[in-house]
């Protein structure tokens, strides 16, 4: 597939935004049950603002992917059948929840309604919104990932691993961002988020590694034989029927050599996994406030490369029909 930057940013930014929001909610839950120390409402406010901003940028960049963004509202109509439609419903919902979450903290509406146990878990509006938001964030991971995973023709994508990857990449980058955010503020949650970020990165490594392995072994269901219905080993296209390209030659192929692909893969394998983990570890040792920020930035960059590769790697069967000009 042709890796469109709008979609690369859309998915990576959303992922980081969702992850960050989930990190905030996790942080809040942990602090409510006193596993980690409590944070100021500003912490949550600005945190959710960042998450919101990421979601918003993601949303905006998605518009660049649309031919007719002014009609985007129409997308909400087919939620029964279309994962894209579902994403389009879930994303604004999440944005509302993230905003509400921030607002609640800002306004200080954090008086608990009920307290479970002996101050074990005070439940307030922000927690309710947070937990609900967390569920929606997960739903959004699923919806976004399913947009890709549900296209059965793209066999590289059509796998639960795609959902795992999207989710764990989101979580990893979100928690990494939370760590970076905390480091920036200089509070003590760096280690907390950092540890989770490392865990998620590790899981993402496993699941992405699994999908890479899987994709390497894919047996494509379509080939030239099924494409044109002629049973012979030696079929080659001599003409795709037009000389200078069309939507079909632009949208479904990256027009890069295999070397570029390998390079990008190695790049993201380094940038997404070992480097950020190392940097976080180093930050743990050195207590540097900058390293976690660097770790996030590098991981995000890596994720952009990962997403580019995600698209480029996917072989659309329609490409069988568009191979040669003459």
């Amino acid at each position: 597939m042709h890796p469109a930057f709008s979609v690369i940013f859309l998915t990576t930014l959303l992922g980081a935004g969702q992850g960050l929001f989930l990190a905030l909610v996790t942080g809040q839950v942990y602090s409510r049950i006193h596993l980690i120390e409590a944070q100021s409402s500003d912490y949550y406010l600005f945190g959710s603002l960042i998450a919101f901003a990421l979601l918003l940028t993601g949303l905006v960049s998605s518009f660049f992917h649309l031919g007719r963004p002014e009609r985007a509202w129409r997308t909400a109509t087919k939620w029964r059948t279309s994962w894209l439609s579902r994403e389009v419903i879930v994303l604004p919902l999440l944005m509302v929840l993230v905003a509400t979450f921030g607002l609640i903290h800002w306004m200080g509406w954090t008086q608990p309604f009920v307290v479970a146990g002996e101050d074990a878990l005070p439940v307030d509006a922000s927690l309710l919104v947070g937990v609900f938001g967390a569920l929606v964030a997960f739903a959004l991971f699923v919806a976004t990932a399913m947009i890709y995973a549900s296209v059965k023709f793209l066999q590289e994508w059509a796998s639960p691993l795609t959902v795992f990857n999207f989710t764990f990449f989101g979580l990893a980058s979100g928690f990494m961002l939370a760590a970076a955010y905390s480091a920036f503020l200089g509070n003590d949650l760096v280690t907390f988020f950092g540890t989770w970020a490392v865990i998620f990165t590790a899981i993402a490594f496993l699941s992405r590694g699994a999908s890479l392995l899987r994709n390497r072994r894919i047996k494509y269901r379509s080939n030239l034989k099924t494409a044109i219905g002629v049973r012979h080993q030696g079929i080659a296209q001599t003409s795709q029927g037009f000389s200078a390209g069309s939507f079909n030659t632009r949208e479904f192929f990256h027009h890069r050599g295999p070397r570029t692909l390998t390079m990008v893969r190695s790049l993201f394998m380094v940038l997404v996994f070992p480097v950020p983990v190392l940097l976080i570890g180093l930050a743990y040792v050195t207590k540097s406030p900058n390293l976690p920020i660097l770790a996030f930035l590098i991981q995000y960059l890596g994720l952009v490369a990962e997403r580019w590769y995600f698209f480029a790697e996917a072989q659309h069967p329609q490409n069988l029909y568009y191979q040669r000009v003459s």
Binding site: T238, G241, F242, S243, A244, V325, S326
Partner: peptide, 11 residues
């Protein structure tokens, strides 16, 4: 028509 054959190759 030129979109069908905008240039040629030697076969």
């Amino acid at each position: 028509l030129r979109q069908i054959h905008s240039h040629n190759y030697l076969f």
